[in-house]
């Protein structure tokens, strides 16, 4: 079995085979053949221990395009809570030939950095997810090359801190905002970036009128439309509009699009999207959708 001083000792002491009954080496029927047959939770446990690389691109004031990448290395000290991870960051200026270490370290490992970070004023902002309760929103300033944090609204309770997995950051009307569905569904807006006092509960969304059952599941605010309606993604699947005046929801569905895992707002420009992106084999499809109001408003 296992070698090594400590093991040998314990083996003799406590784990003794009492009796043998059945035929040997009968393996259970459920054993996976391939690595990919492992249950998803175990697979992600393994894959999350590979070195992480992630990156963002941003164009701050000085007209430089910078890329940020964050590394995690596992330091070799397992404890009761698992392994201690150390986080590092590097910046690459597009056009240069190397990555440069930056002094600042990422403030938290629980960043929802994959899909739903937002760009605002030359920063990229993430929401710190549960179990990180000591921090709320964390940002990286591409000009200063520093990480910073934004505290939650002053009257934010523990219950809301625990419910952060249901929240989502966005940018509405040029301001940082987040959606909070702890009790009701509120959208908070930060009127002055970085100032905790300026958090304002700007919208209270009424989700209760949907077929006697409130709409559940994360709403991700995207934009305020010209007529005052709020454009959001609901449950990563449907684009919805909410009219604060009539409290009505509108659904915007695209034929053939099943998941809205990644959505970016398009800024109209004289340069066609195809030319701006400068990539080959790009397909641009202009879709028109039927606004389906009758699900909600009878």
């Amino acid at each position: 079995m296992v070698t090594g001083g400590a093991v040998g000792r314990v083996e003799v002491l406590e784990c003794r085979i009492l009796e043998k009954q059945n035929v040997r080496s009968r393996t259970p029927a459920t054993m996976p053949e391939s690595l990919t047959d492992l249950p998803p939770n175990i697979l992600s446990e393994i894959l999350s221990r590979l070195p992480i690389k992630s990156l963002f691109v941003c164009s701050p004031k000085e007209n430089l395009y910078k890329v940020l990448r964050i590394f995690a290395t596992v330091s070799d000290k397992p404890s009761q809570d698992g392994f201690k991870m150390e986080y590092w960051a590097q910046v690459h200026v597009v056009g240069s030939s190397s990555w440069r270490d930056i002094e600042d370290r990422p403030l938290s490992e629980y960043l929802s950095w994959d899909k739903w970070s937002v760009f605002l004023n030359g920063t990229v902002c993430w929401l710190c997810k549960y179990p990180e309760t000591s921090k709320f929103v964390v940002f990286f300033d591409f000009h200063e090359e520093k990480f910073g944090e934004i505290p939650p609204p002053l009257d934010f309770g523990l219950q809301q801190q625990m419910n952060k997995h249901g929240m989502s950051v966005g940018v509405l009307g040029g301001y940082l905002c987040f959606s909070d569905d702890t009790r009701d569904f509120d959208i908070w807006v930060m009127k002055k970036f970085g100032s905790q006092d300026s958090w304002t509960k700007e919208f209270v969304v009424d989700t209760s009128i949907h077929m006697d059952k409130p709409l559940e599941g994360p709403f991700r605010p995207l934009q305020i439309l010209g007529d005052g309606k709020i454009l959001m993604i609901w449950a990563d699947r449907v684009l919805v509009t909410y009219d604060p005046k009539t409290k009505g929801f509108g659904y915007l569905e695209f034929d053939g699009v099943e998941s809205l895992g990644k959505v970016v707002l398009y800024t109209p420009s004289f340069v066609p999207l195809k030319d701006a992106l400068m990539v080959d084999n790009l397909t641009v499809q202009n879709m028109t959708s039927r606004e389906n109001q009758d699900l909600i408003e009878d």
């Binding site: 054993m31 996976p32 690595l35 492992l38 249950p39 939770n41 175990i42 446990e45 393994i46 894959l47 999350s48 221990r49 590979l50 596992v74 397992p78 009761q80 698992g82 392994f83």
Partner: peptide, 26 residues
């Protein structure tokens, strides 16, 4: 290690699950 990590999942031995997952990643 594959059998081991499955067993730690069934038995819920978190610490060993991490150790084995780390080894598999390595």
């Amino acid at each position: 290690l594959k059998y081991l990590v499955l067993a730690t999942d069934t038995l819920q031995v978190t610490c060993l699950c991490y150790t084995v997952a780390k080894k598999m990643a390595d």
